[in-house]
Design a protein around this nucleic acid. Structure first.
Lengths: 144, 144
DNA sequence: CTACATGCAAACCGTTTGCACCCTA
DNA sequence: TAGGGTGCAAACGGTTTGCATGTAG
């Protein structure tokens, strides 16, 4: 991601260019993982960027509607996660122990979607795939 | 699924055999789709099977822990869905319009899991895949 | 100057829990 | 008859909303 001011991007989506929105966008762009609203809240607070939690929720939903962010929902995790939408099709490895979320960029089922479209009379527009198990560290701990 | 009394199955998991549990299990076994707690609640109420919502929640979580049920979580759906665990690996087509959920039994990524295990140093134990788009009816409506 | 963004507090809603009572094993 | 199951009401926690104020365009 090139260094950029999010002003242009916000404007392109017809949104006012406010400090809060830029901070939230920046936080998500810089994160290697999807984040929850309160993770963003605490992270910004630590950096001295005070902001109300409800502002964060409102911003996350506005940006998601515009397609700038993507929602991620996981089983056994009651909070919604958000990530910057880099337009790169992506999936996740989720460690069942430490809950680490590792994005992977190869998608194994593009071909399969076409097949489903034809065989099931279903017009496919996308899919979500997450793979779960244990990361190397947690797997070692478990087997010891 | 053969006609059965769920008593044995419950006993096999060390659970007491109560009317409520049997009704909930039966509801899920008979359903072609995963159901939410309140869908089960209303469905049972219609059939004259009064039962407290919290009993349903407790039963769903007990049966899930035992592996008799599986949780399903979808983006843009705040409620958790539950389905009877037929031990058949399965995925879903989800219509973005009418929210219909169509289970599909072929899994396109068994092979890919092995690859991930090796390349990413991640011990894979499973995955979740859902495919979304529009069912035939809703797609027709949209394009007209 | 106006419409949209924000802070604050309260509401919302799916889910969980404490407690007294009930019932299965 | 003991220990788990259930109903009821209240709590919980993530998220949303109403309203008054602030601010970008």
């Amino acid at each position: 991601m090139a260094i950029m001011d999010y002003s242009e991007e916000l404007a392109a989506f017809g949104l006012k260019n406010t400090k809060n929105r830029k901070e939230i966008l920046k936080t998500l762009v810089d994160s290697s993982q999807p984040l929850t609203a309160d993770q963003i809240y605490f992270q910004l607070n630590q950096n001295g960027e005070m902001m109300n939690l409800s502002t964060i929720y409102r911003t996350l939903s506005t940006l998601s509607e515009k397609g700038m962010l993507q929602k991620v929902v996981l089983v056994d995790e009651s909070k919604t996660l958000y990530e910057y939408n880099r337009q790169i099709h992506k999936h996740y490895l989720i460690c069942q122990d430490c809950r680490a979320i590792v994005p992977i960029e190869h998608c194994p089922i593009a071909e399969y979607e076409k097949q489903v479209s034809q065989e099931m009379n279903f017009h496919v527009i996308g899919h979500r795939l997450s793979i779960y198990g244990y990361c190397q560290d947690c797997w070692k701990k478990r087997s010891s």
